[in-house]
């Protein structure tokens, strides 16, 4: 399904799960994708591990370091995706330098071949994207996904909305990932976003770890993104399939 249709057709809040490719084991990704699809997750965000993940807290720093030690790389991620049967809608998230060294055009082409519909590169400034890479992204049908935060001005939120084509990633609190402070304090900001009537739907991410957090976020937006809490679940997992089923059941009991 296309990203646009997922948001249009949704009957309940969209659950987007982030995980780090190559973690806990080099070959974990295909298992994780299949399990998440079976558990009824709407879409996934595949994290491309980076040596120096500036926006990430300790949990994703650690999963990234382990994944790199396991031998993961951008090319291996695409090789694994090519062999993977799961049809779950996918986006990718990473740091711009890794994409730059892989080659932006080659990266977009590989994304298209592997049904990756959107890419989040938090450290790629919008003006640089527009000047150098937008035509390439468009050529391969890859949606750029941009972030807004509680400190983003209203004017800039409108600008980011105008630059977006799929959805806006609203960072719930001014923090790195996995701060674990919960998102209840973000109510005023989330309400502001909701009343702005933006053109693009919003998914809320960072600091969503429980059913309560996810339900809270879903009041204000199309859904939420869970990252660090999911990674933590995988940390001590002996059977990925079971633990993933259990984790998702906790977030969405009725499925």
């Amino acid at each position: 399904m296309q990203l646009k249709e997922i948001f249009k057709n949704r009957k309940e809040p969209i659950l987007n799960i982030y995980f780090t490719a190559g973690y806990p084991a080099l070959e974990s990704m295909p298992i994780i994708l299949n399990s998440l699809e079976q558990a009824g997750v709407d879409m996934v965000e595949i994290g491309m591990p980076y040596s120096d993940p500036l926006s990430d807290g300790p949990t994703i720093q650690k999963s990234s370091a382990i994944a790199l030690k396991n031998g993961i790389s951008t090319s291996i991620i695409f090789e694994q995706l090519a062999k993977c049967e799961s049809k779950i809608p996918k986006i990718m998230m990473g740091y711009f330098n890794a994409v730059l060294q892989f080659g932006v055009e080659k990266f977009c082409e590989k994304c298209q071949q592997n049904n990756i519909q959107g890419v989040i590169l938090p450290d790629l400034p919008i003006p640089v994207y527009q000047e150098h890479y937008q035509t390439t992204f468009e050529k391969y049908g890859i949606a750029p996904i941009f972030l807004v935060t509680p400190e983003t001005s209203e004017e800039r939120i409108r600008y980011i909305d105008a630059c977006s084509t799929a959805f806006i990633y609203a960072v719930s609190t001014s923090s790195t990932t996995g701060a674990g402070t919960g998102i209840q304090s973000a109510a005023a900001y989330l309400q502001k976003l909701q009343t702005m009537q933006l053109n693009n739907p919003i998914l809320i991410g960072f600091n969503i770890g429980s059913k309560a957090d996810f339900d809270f976020a879903s009041q204000y937006a199309a859904g939420g993104i869970i990252g660090s809490a999911f990674i933590k679940q995988l940390e001590n997992s002996t059977t990925l399939e079971n633990d993933i089923q259990k984790f998702i059941k906790n977030i969405r009991p009725k499925n």
């Binding site: 500036l54 926006s55 711009f96 938090p122 450290d123 790629l124 400034p125 003006p127 640089v128 941009f146 972030l147 807004v148 935060t149 400190e151 983003t152 001005s153 800039r156 980011i160 960072v171 001014s174 923090s175 790195t176």
Partner: peptide, 18 residues
């Protein structure tokens, strides 16, 4: 724009933009 030829710039995540 904050560049020295091709070098420089501000490749910061949105969290640091303000």
């Amino acid at each position: 724009a904050g560049f020295y030829g091709v070098f420089g710039g501000a490749f910061v995540p949105e969290m640091l933009y303000p």
